[in-house]
Amino acid sequence: MDFTEDQLQRYSRHIILPEVGGKGQKKILNAKVFIVGAGGLGCPVGYYLAAAGVGIIGMIDNDTVELSNLQRQIAHNTKKLGVHKVDSAKETFEALNPDVKIIGIKERISKDNIIDLIKDYDIIVDGSDNFPTRYLVNDACVMLKKPLVSGAILRFEGQVTTILPKEGHCYRCLFEEMPPPGLVPSCQEAGVIGAITGVVGSLQATEVLKLILGKGDILKNTLLIYDALKANFRRVKVPKNPECPVCSENPTITELLDYDAGYCRI
């Protein structure tokens, strides 16, 4: 495949980079990335991956755009109130770059649909806002051996980590079990500074592009923590747990669970 004149111009700043070049840009154009959530993190992740020319971007979210989302969810706008988030994001991203195909899924992700949804994608991005989904996505990615770029935000703090099943740690090596319901406040309860979603989502998008290109150091066995109030980044080592219930040699979790038990989802 040769680049069109428009593509040469659109991706010129990538092609010039020694780590990308024409070959790397073609890898990006042929990549398939699945994003869980079209909210605070899914918006900037999808935005930058669409701008970069990722060929197919799948997005799942069952919510519609609300006014309270617009303080941080930058793919949506005031005219999209009441519209499904994945439809709103698809329109934004395809307007930005006609090279990309956005596949929006208006469903809740669950143990019954996740395997079929993600099995044809190269890389998975978690931009969800709740623990049941976070553990579901982790376990499914470990079982399918899919690279997972996980991000989380709350108040003025954000976290990013990249899970390469079998090679490095997984989310359960870090936090083996979900916290009990109510212990960790949600964004709805605790608030979130809008711009931090851009920091964390951009870090996630950059990890995805590095994985596609096969360049640089990935956040494997590492949790990157951003404290916006202190303007500080911290890297925390996360060793692979040899007794991890899902990613060890002898896992105790071998099929997807009922992650919602005990949790209410709003």
């Binding site: 680049f3 040469l8 111009q9 010129s12 700043r13 092609i15 010039i16 070049g21 024409g22």
Partner: peptide, 9 residues
């Protein structure tokens, strides 16, 4: 930069 983009490709 298109002179370099074309040459590099």
């Amino acid at each position: 930069p298109y002179t370099f983009v074309k040459s590099k490709l």
